[in-house]
Computed example of a mutant assay.
Amino acid sequence: MQIVAFGVQADERPLLEKAFAGPHQVRSLDVFLNRDTAPIAHGYEIVSSSVNADLGADVLQVLAAGGTKMIAQRSTGFNNVDLQAAADLGMSIGRVAAYSPYAVAEFAWALALAINRRIVRATNRTRNFDFRLDGLMGRDLRGRTVGVLGTGRIGEAFTRIAHGFGMHLLGWDLAENPNCLALGMKYVSRERLFAEADLITLHLPLVEDTRQLIDAAALAAMKDDAILINSSRGGLVDTVALVEALKAGRLTGVGLDVYEEEARFFFFDKSLDIISDDTLARLMTFGNVLITSHQAYFTEEAVGQIIEATVANVEDYLAHRTNENMLVTRGQLPTAAR
């Protein structure tokens, strides 16, 4: 089977091609799947897409017209996919329901620690042989309070690390995680979590109810010296409101591995371009804001599991089987994905 894979990172390519070696041949492309690149998939029954692919109705129509019947997305979230349009076109859509939660949780902690201890500022100084400690004072995390919004597998992994630091644990989710409760987590309202937490971290899916969950009101409710971390989905945060809070001198710092308009920038070299996104450009000016390019998942273990699940999705599609990763199966939309 000939497969075309979009948005393949250089480090990912050999792993992906090795996994599909044998009965399949993968054409790996570094371009992302969108309206402009969709015609490349003409003649390919199976397409694999990456996290920032545009799988709206118009893109799906182009793919279907070119003969594509199955899309194997190499990511967990599917807010970028028009599932109803895929069903109407008789397509199959697979994703990766889960991979190493430690990859994202550990990276979220890396952001939090770097912000708390001013690591980036210190490193920039020492490269210029400036070894002063002015402005580099952090805080002990032991005894402070962490607020975890979303206590699924990743949120739980983050909580276990927080427990190891000796922090007080607050959680918010639709359902309580018994493993987090066993660690001493107390589930509270969002309002209380915002008001009491010294460190707030987001591990939620992006759905209509969570879009811009961190808005102006939520930011106003947080402590002036709180740290905010988002390694989940950019759309969880109202970035314009975040900029206003930072301009007012609030928050110790912010760590963002995701951005609501990231598809135009992340994974590309924009160093020679004029950045037209005023909000992103303004965020970059704050010394207490650390932005990375959606790399929290990018470990050998997590990428390996993502590829393994993608191969399984393709094999199950070809064998007319279904699995927990399938959001749409040959035009049928499962109840859980509606």
Results as ranks from 00 to 15, higher is better:
Leu181Gln: 11
Arg211Ile: 06
Gly147Arg: 02
Phe32Gln: 08
Glu260Ala: 09
Ile71Trp: 08
Phe265Lys: 11
Met91Val: 13
Ile291Ser: 00
Thr329Arg: 12
His42Glu: 14
Asp198Asn: 05
Lys18Asp: 03
Arg27Pro: 00
Leu63Thr: 01
Leu133Pro: 14
Ile154Asp: 03
Thr285Arg: 07
Gln84Met: 13
Ala105Cys: 15
Leu63Asp: 00
Leu318Gly: 04
Leu246Glu: 02
Arg127Thr: 04
Gly171Cys: 02
Asp58His: 08
Lys223Leu: 07
Phe298Asn: 12
Ile274Tyr: 10
Gly94Ser: 12
Gly66Lys: 02
Val289Met: 01
Asn52Asp: 05
Ile161Cys: 08
Ala195Asn: 12
Asp173Cys: 00
Leu60Thr: 06
Gln332Ala: 05
Gln295His: 14
Gly184Ala: 13
Arg125Ser: 13
Leu149Arg: 07
Ser271Met: 08
Thr299Leu: 06
Asn52Ala: 13
Leu181Phe: 07
Arg190Val: 01
Leu290Ala: 07
Lys186His: 06
Glu324Trp: 06
Thr279Asn: 03
Leu113Tyr: 03
Asp58Asn: 14
Thr239Trp: 07
Lys69Glu: 15
Glu12His: 03
Val148Ala: 14
Ser100Ala: 09
Lys247Phe: 14
Pro101Gln: 10
Arg321Ala: 12
Thr299Ala: 01
Ser276Thr: 10
Lys186Phe: 14
Arg95Gly: 14
Val26Cys: 03
Ile200Gly: 00
Ser276His: 10
Val311Cys: 02
Ala72His: 06
Thr329His: 06
Leu136Met: 11
Ala38Pro: 00
Leu15Arg: 14
Leu219Asp: 06
Gly7Leu: 09
Ala19Asp: 10
Met91Gly: 09
Gln295Arg: 07
Val303Phe: 05
Thr201Ser: 15
Leu169Gln: 11
Arg132Trp: 07
Ala241Ser: 10
Val51Cys: 14
Leu169Pro: 06
Phe32Asn: 10
Ala85Trp: 05
Met1Glu: 05
Asp11Ala: 13
Met1Val: 05
Leu141Val: 01
Asp82Met: 02
Asp54Tyr: 09
Val188Ile: 15
Met185Ser: 02
Asn116Gln: 06
Ala309Gln: 11
Ala114Ile: 09
Leu283Cys: 07
Phe6His: 11
Met284Gln: 08
Leu193Ser: 01
Phe131Ala: 01
Phe298Trp: 08
Ser276Ala: 03
Phe194Leu: 05
Gly184Arg: 00
Asp224Ser: 08
Arg139Asn: 15
Gly147Met: 05
Leu272Glu: 15
Leu228Met: 08
Phe286Thr: 05
Arg321Thr: 01
Phe266Cys: 09
Asp273Thr: 11
Leu55Gln: 13
Gly155Ile: 06
Ser293Trp: 04
Tyr187Arg: 00
Arg139Ser: 10
Ile161Gln: 09
Ala19Thr: 12
Arg35Lys: 08
Phe165Met: 02
Gly43Phe: 09
Asn79Lys: 01
Phe194Gln: 08
Leu327Thr: 01
Met137Val: 13
Ser293Asn: 14
Glu191Val: 09
Met91Gln: 11
Val303Thr: 15
Asn80Trp: 03
Leu193Thr: 04
Gln2Asn: 11
Ala263Pro: 10
Arg121Cys: 09
Ala281Pro: 13
Arg13Asp: 11
